[in-house]
């Protein structure tokens, strides 16, 4: 139950700039054959969409945690949701980044 003392994190949306930056990180660390602006923000990262496998997604996770100072944990927030698409990942970064 929310009380006045609770301070729920606002649902921050990522900017196009941040999405672009994250897309560039992904292209670089995975040597993807697409360019950053070809990654559709809402397309799934796994399977049908960008076609990443779980090890690719791990690599992305390691790179973005380092770059933005995130603390990703297996029992943390809904990681599957976070890594669903470029947009969801960027939104998460926008809300949680420490640098």
């Amino acid at each position: 139950m929310n009380t006045m003392q609770d301070n729920p994190k606002p649902n921050i949306s990522s900017t196009a700039d941040l999405q672009r930056e994250v897309a560039e990180l992904m292209v670089e660390c995975l040597n993807l054959e697409v360019t950053a602006d070809q990654i559709i923000p809402d397309a799934p990262l796994y399977g049908e969409g960008l076609g990443l496998d779980s090890i690719d997604v791990l690599e992305v996770a390691l790179v973005v945690s380092k770059r933005y100072g995130l603390q990703l944990r297996s029992d943390g927030a809904d990681n599957r949701q976070v890594f669903n698409s470029l947009r969801s990942l960027s939104d998460y970064i926008a809300a949680q980044r420490t640098r």
Binding site: S54, L58, A61, L62, L72, S74, D75, G76, N79, V82
Partner: peptide
């Protein structure tokens, strides 16, 4: 169980 980001993070932990 292999297959999702959570399991990958568990491996790392």
């Amino acid at each position: 169980g292999l297959g999702h980001i959570d399991s990958m993070l568990r491996v790392r932990e």
